[in-house]
């Protein structure tokens, strides 16, 4: 009988998005509580993530127990960013020269970041390929 209860609760965990979402919120809550208790300079969500990642790697929980819940959050993550962007309502000053300056900064900065990152990774990949070829010889 207890085994059957265990099995059916596991089935609910694997099928229900809501229960999985609850589990993920639980990890966040734990991480947040830990950050508050110890006074870590890291957000609670990051600690919660490390906690969940650790449990997944240690096979404490299976990926099926959180996949549906995580997909809900990750699939529509842009929705959760909208309220923060609405902060623009209190910053009418960005409509003028200041806004143009910031846009210029972001444009130039992003070009540098993208080009720099891609060229660095390409260089590392080519160096590794060459040293790999040397070893083979």
């Amino acid at each position: 009988m207890p085994r059957r209860i265990l099995l059916s609760s596991q089935r609910i965990l694997h099928r229900s998005r809501l229960v999985q979402l609850g589990l993920i919120v639980g990890f966040w809550w734990l991480g947040d509580a830990a950050v508050r208790a110890i006074g870590l300079p890291v957000p609670g969500g990051v600690i919660g993530m490390l906690l969940m990642l650790g449990l997944l790697l240690a096979r404490g929980i299976g990926p099926c127990s959180v996949r549906r819940g995580a997909d809900v959050l990750l699939g529509d993550m842009l929705l959760f960013f909208v309220p923060a962007v609405m902060g623009l309502l209190d910053h009418g000053e960005f409509l003028g020269l200041l806004g143009a300056k910031i846009f210029l900064l972001i444009l130039v900065g992003t070009l540098l970041v993208m080009a720099g990152t891609a060229l660095t990774v390409e260089l590392v990949q080519r160096l590794m390929a060459r040293s790999g070829a040397d070893h083979a010889r």
Binding site: L53, L74, L79, P83
Partner: peptide, 23 residues
Amino acid sequence: LLGSHWLMAMVGPLTVAFALPIY
């Protein structure tokens, strides 16, 4: 924000959910 702050608070659990793609 009066009624929308909980949407913003979901950013916390969203961060946790990133554990799955890393895994």
